[in-house]
Amino acid sequence: MIRSMTGFGRGEASDNVRQFVVEMKSVNHRYNDIVVRMPKRLSYLEEKVKELVKDEIKRGRVELYISLENIGEGDTDIALNLPLTQKYLNCLREIQNQFQVTDDISVSLLAKFPDVIKIETAEEDEDQMWLGLKDASLKALKLLMNMRSDEGKKLAEDIENRCAYIADIIKAVEKRAPQVVLEYKEKLRERINELLEDSIQLDESRLNTEVVIYADKSSITEEIVRLNSHIYQLKKALKENQPVGRKLDFLIQEMNREVNTIGSKSNDLEIVNHVVELKSELEKIREQVQNIE
């Protein structure tokens, strides 16, 4: 089943200490391009997140927005700098003794001095951080993949319908082709008779030779056979369980090539009109294929 390259997913995960929020969106791209925007404190997990995404997504540009919020007290520690506090206290007592200062030395006074109370970031458990981020990322990735799959089904249905219409046009071209040769023969006969004014008897063998040469030059049998083969391969690819975007793009290019050849070989207005229809439908499929993984 084919998948679109367009999708969005959001995932959340939390424990007693922190909460992760991951938003993930993907758009069409020729290659697999993954961009991660995350807090610096999580930068060491960037490659792990990318590998997680690459396991599921083989083509397209994927942007991840990761946020981290502390919801508990586990990430910070508040500590008293005892040696420094003792030095401050000694200095204050020395001031009292030297200058006969009677003001009391209070806790609030000591706490105001620099670095008496230190706020430190607790050492983080990297494995625990990864488990939380992985959980949120997988939830977002699952929703994104579901959206890509749903849109892929719709794209496949549209392409199959257009392939059926293209097959009908090809049948019409195939049916019309022999008539073009017969009409050419009759027009050539009429033109020769008109020029000769019935003064000279028409050489049927020579006329037939000219018609055979024209039929050979204008033959589109090979192109029709290849077009039908490409349609079969295209419909078969739509049912494969792997990325087929590039394969479909190649098949559309080849089909365009065959249609252009038919157009260049034919001087018949009806076939030329069919060629225009074919090119129009192939262009619509090509636009859809640009968004298939």
Rank of each mutant, 00 (worst) to 15 (best):
K112I: 11
K112L: 09
K112S: 13
K112Q: 13
F113Q: 07
F113P: 08
D115V: 08
D115F: 10
D115M: 14
D115W: 07
V116T: 03
V116A: 03
I117R: 01
I117S: 04
I117E: 06
K118M: 14
K118S: 08
K118D: 12
K118R: 08
I119E: 13
I119A: 11
I119T: 10
E120K: 12
E120T: 13
T121W: 13
T121R: 15
T121S: 13
A122L: 13
A122S: 15
E123G: 09
E123Y: 14
E123H: 12
E124H: 11
E124W: 14
E124I: 14
D125I: 09
D125E: 08
E126M: 14
D127K: 15
D127Y: 14
Q128A: 15
Q128H: 15
Q128C: 12
Q128P: 15
M129F: 05
M129G: 11
W130S: 10
W130A: 08
W130V: 07
W130Q: 08
L131V: 13
L131D: 12
L131T: 14
G132L: 05
G132M: 03
L133F: 01
L133N: 05
K134F: 09
K134A: 06
K134I: 10
D135S: 14
D135V: 09
D135H: 07
D135W: 06
A136P: 02
A136E: 01
A136K: 00
S137Y: 03
S137N: 06
S137L: 06
S137E: 03
S137I: 04
S137F: 05
L138R: 06
L138F: 12
L138H: 11
L138E: 12
K139G: 07
K139H: 05
A140T: 01
A140G: 07
L141R: 00
L141P: 00
L141W: 07
K142G: 06
K142H: 09
L143I: 10
L143C: 09
L144W: 00
L144K: 00
L144Q: 01
L144C: 02
M145N: 06
M145D: 11
N146Q: 11
M147R: 06
R148F: 04
S149N: 11
S149L: 08
S149E: 09
D150N: 11
D150M: 12
D150L: 10
D150I: 10
D150Y: 10
E151S: 01
E151I: 05
E151P: 02
E151H: 03
G152P: 01
G152E: 00
G152C: 05
K153P: 08
K154P: 09
K154L: 07
L155N: 00
L155A: 00
L155G: 00
L155P: 00
L155R: 02
L155K: 01
A156D: 01
